[in-house]
Amino acid sequence: MEEKREPKIVGFLCKWCTSAAADLAGTSRMQYPPSIRPIKVMCSGSVDMSYILRALLMGADGVLVGGCHPADCHYLSGNYKARRRIAILKSIFDTLDLDSERIELKWISASEGKKFADTVKEFNDKLSEKGPNDFTKSWNL
């Protein structure tokens, strides 16, 4: 058996803020768990609910969506769209008794390398504690 299981985190990172923050964390040599698997998207508002569901159903232990801070979205309101979508998705999860804490939406600006590293660390720790995502037991893609 694995002694310490590393969770799988799929990160949908917006090109303008959070992906740039991840770049900055790297440039600053900040260390964070490699468990995050980044997928760069143009905007957090382009993250379809199905992307999050798909990731969780395919075995991700958590999904991190990173966008620009309110009022800073490169596309004006994409982050608000993401916020609404994720709020809806989380409430659906709660209704179905699924673990909505496995979905995390964070505003991380391009200057917040440290916040990115800290967010990944915290999310990683939380998911390690929760253990493996059991969605895949109920559904099979």
């Binding site: 770049d23 964390a25 790297g26 440039t27 040599r29 900040m30 260390q31 490699p34 980044p38 590293a117």
Partner: peptide
Amino acid sequence: ANIREQSSWPHSKQPDYA
């Protein structure tokens, strides 16, 4: 494929993972 800022640098202490 961004393997420097998003892999080699932030995971320099875990080269196998990097």
